[in-house]
């Protein structure tokens, strides 16, 4: 019985690790070719190439976070953000992705979801909608939420504000 449980655990872990496809590819693939959307992608290959560049100026938390990522993808559009936000929430398979944090402000909606096995997070998905547009952001890899949240707190408030203002060019 223990053996079976162990094997099952291994299988589940394995499928979690080897499931390379991110939520954008799986649930929003049709928008990747949609002219209303803009896509930013960084493939696993590019992540490997990044290891060759100069990391000396990069803070260690950021460095560690990035080194554990496998792929990254953003899908965004300025058209009908509220509509796409609603649609996105219905598209995602709730058996695999669980809600992490939902924020609903007067002009800002965002929703964090994770795909995890045990305590290991394999994918962090951010669905956001504000007056500027709709954004879907997916990080695949081994994600440490504490490190991720520290990235912002390490910065000064001014930098954070700049970032918020600059996030849509």
């Amino acid at each position: 019985m223990k053996k079976i449980a162990f094997i099952l655990f291994l299988l589940l872990t394995a499928t979690g690790v080897f499931a390379q496809d991110d939520a954008i590819g799986r649930f929003f693939g049709k928008y990747l070719d949609d002219s209303r959307f803009s896509v930013v992608s960084v493939s696993p290959r590019m992540f490997r190439l990044m290891s060759k560049i100069d990391w000396d100026t990069i803070p260690s938390d950021l460095k560690q976070t990035i080194s554990r990522l496998q792929s990254f993808r953003v899908l965004s559009t300025p058209t009908t953000p509220a509509l796409f936000y609603k649609e996105a929430l219905t598209h995602i398979d709730r058996k695999e992705y669980e809600d992490l944090i939902t924020v609903r402000n007067s002009n800002d909606n965002f929703h964090f979801m994770i795909r995890a096995t045990g305590n290991t997070i394999h994918e962090l998905l951010m669905i956001a909608a504000d007056e500027d547009g709709f954004t879907l952001m997916s990080f695949v890899g081994d994600i440490d939420l504490d490190k991720l949240s520290r990235l912002a707190t390490d910065m000064d408030i001014k930098g954070m504000e700049n970032l918020k203002n600059a996030k849509r060019k």
Binding site: L62, L145, S149, A152, M155, L163, K164
Partner: peptide, 18 residues
């Protein structure tokens, strides 16, 4: 790397907000 860094910070900011 710059793009990732930017995206991670955006995610981080929102995460902390939440």
């Amino acid at each position: 790397l710059t793009a990732i860094r930017h995206a991670l910070l955006v995610a981080s900011v929102h995460l902390n907000e939440g």
